[in-house]
Amino acid sequence: MAIDPLSNARSERRWAFAMVGAAMMMLFAIVWASLSPHMNPPSNIENVDPNTLHIAGEFTEDNLGTQVDAKGRVTTRIVTSQFSFAPECVVVPQDMQVTFRFVSPDVIHGLLVVGTNINTMVVPGYVSQVHTMFDKPGDMLMPCHEFCGLGHSQMVAHVRVVPIADFKPDENGRVACAEH
């Protein structure tokens, strides 16, 4: 086998350029996805006091679940705590923009909805906000995905996606999974 230092160095340099090029292509694809279709992770730095959020403000019990505001915007508010979601089932309309807002009064939680872009940590002290649009009706799984204590495995909720025709807010703009 011929051992030629110059040709070795050349092939090595070529490979290095090719690999840096490949990395740059990946980077380009990621940056494009972030700028053009706005595929960004949830990053709204918005504070909420974990010790008082249940007493006053946006996340008191009456305000939890799905609500349609005067402008027709759909917002779903959920409190995650050891070891359940409140509420454990939420209703959302199909083919409409939905904003989810999550808070935790105790420890770190996290969640995802299978098959969607909903995936966020819920860190005490912060509001986690995710926007999405569901394209199919049905019940979707929303488990807690971050270790929050020994009951973590039991912490599961569901998102019920209904066609717009079946999405009927009451006089306060609220929609819930079950009639009370």
Partner: peptide, 8 residues
């Protein structure tokens, strides 16, 4: 980055 939401 964005794709991380599928697997995080």
């Amino acid at each position: 980055y964005g794709m991380n939401a599928m697997v995080h």
